[in-house]
């Protein structure tokens, strides 16, 4: 492996990632008072972003082919149900992931 190239790739990736993380702060943090629109977005965007992130996590499901996302759907429902009723985040995650890992080994084995 060419060390110079590897270093260059990592440095560029780091710089571009840093840019995406620092841009909004560069644009607004010097102002004493945030524009009303920006603080409104800061409050309302997270809920929209989270839903989209879930969709992004599930993007590789192939609905047209077996098992058509059934194990994912069941596991997501388990998480939603547990989180709505018991409100124990860690438990919901561990249980949902366990259900998923069991489903893809038993009821819906990947061929």
């Amino acid at each position: 492996m060419n060390n110079g190239y590897t270093l260059a790739v990592i440095l560029i990736a780091a710089a571009m990632t840093a840019l995406t993380r620092i841009l909004p702060h560069l644009a607004f943090s010097r102002r004493a008072e945030l524009p009303q629109t920006v603080s409104y977005l800061g409050e309302s965007l997270p809920a929209a972003i989270m839903v989209i992130l879930v969709a992004y996590c599930l993007r590789s499901i192939d609905f047209a082919a077996y098992p058509s996302g059934i194990p994912e759907t069941i596991s997501v429902l388990v998480v939603v149900l547990l989180q709505f009723t018991l409100k124990k985040t860690f438990l919901s995650i561990v249980a949902g992931t366990a259900v998923y890992m069991i489903l893809i080994r038993t009821a819906f084995p990947l061929l």
Binding site: A48, E72, T89
Partner: peptide, 30 residues
């Protein structure tokens, strides 16, 4: 399959936000 834990985590955050927010419009828009 253990990578499903990331999905599960984001789902729990969605549920929490849904429960505590007065307006569901952002989640629906997303």
């Amino acid at each position: 399959g253990i990578d499903f834990s990331a999905t599960a985590f984001f789902v729990t955050v969605c549920v929490d936000q849904w429960r505590k927010s007065s307006s569901h419009l952002p989640a629906i828009a997303g």
